[in-house]
Design a protein around this nucleic acid. Structure first.
Lengths: 159, 159
DNA sequence: GCCGGTCTACTCGGATACCGGATGTCCGAGTTGTGTAGG
DNA sequence: CCTACACAACTCGGACATCCGGTATCCGAGTAGACCGGC
């Protein structure tokens, strides 16, 4: 699992705390958690391409949420950063070597019992991710650290 | 997801088809699907360390199942090959930089809302993997290719 | 014929290279606000 | 004083290095069977 997923999730919550009125640059978000700014920028670009954030260039520019946190699921962020393809990709080794049980047919991957079983488990994972949205994450974080939003806004204003 | 997981799963089913009376070497299992023998051997070693297979050296040696397929879950194989640690490991970036909301405490990872949410999804994945055992996989594969076990045994005998 | 010893072939097991992708860094295109000169 | 223009600073966006883990390979330790010589 890519490190960027964790950064992206924290950044989204931080953007929500910052408020929708002004954009926050990748450099600010990175400094808040002492991350490499240019690399975080790369991840935020992926979120922008996925339609989760909007970006604006120039001074006073930066990133802001494209839609409310409640409309962004964990799955959206993971798919944006990690890519949409499945983690377990069946290489169809059945079809190679002496053990090949027939000519290589199109769409045969669905017939592989192993690929099917792994796919089922991965579907459960994706479903669990899709069932949780970032607003729930934000609420839980605020319950554990109620002063966090205010502290972030104050720090951003002081920059 | 490591490629070796797929190889390990196929190899376990093939070992079941081969029968419990004789061991099968990594070279034979690899040739059956045209895989690199030495690397497959590495994965089988991991399965042996995990107690899923037993290994015996020398001529007539090789690997065999340590217990019935019904007693081996997909989770067991994945954990043996990929390692037991979670795919998403929280780096606790909250605790670094100006955004740190307090001194770094032991066991604070459980408090991170993001880590908790990701952990929940990964738990669903692990549960789905643990719910399926390799004997079910074997039965499904036999339904789709009933001649597969006999073909494998014949090929092994001819070697 | 039977037994003991040796020898070979085959196996796993771990140590050793190689490579692609994640990680990290850098510079250019574009925009916004500002300062300034002119009317 | 107001306006238009040039400038400078700051931002994203993508192109360019670097590092690490999965991938692939090789060689050594050990064992089981086979072969041979002796009894």
């Amino acid at each position: 699992m890519s490190e960027g997923v964790e950064w992206a999730l924290h950044s989204c919550v931080n953007l929500a705390w910052s408020g929708p009125d002004r954009a926050v640059s990748a450099a600010r978000l990175a400094a808040w958690h002492d991350l490499p700014a240019a690399y975080l920028n790369k991840q935020l670009q992926a979120l922008a391409r996925a339609g989760i954030l909007t970006s604006s260039p120039g001074p006073r520019g930066g990133f802001r949420l494209a839609r409310p946190l409640a409309a962004v699921s964990l799955m959206d962020v993971v798919a944006a950063v990690e890519g949409p393809e499945e983690a377990f990709r069946c290489a169809e080794i059945r079809r190679r070597g002496p053990g090949a049980d027939g000519p290589t047919a199109e769409g045969a991957a669905a017939d592989c019992a192993i690929a099917h079983a792994m796919s089922r488990a991965e579907l459960a994972w994706r479903k669990a991710l899709a069932a949780q949205n970032l607003d729930e994450i934000r609420q839980q974080a605020e319950r554990q650290a109620p002063e966090a939003p205010q502290r972030l806004r104050a720090w951003l204003a002081a920059q």
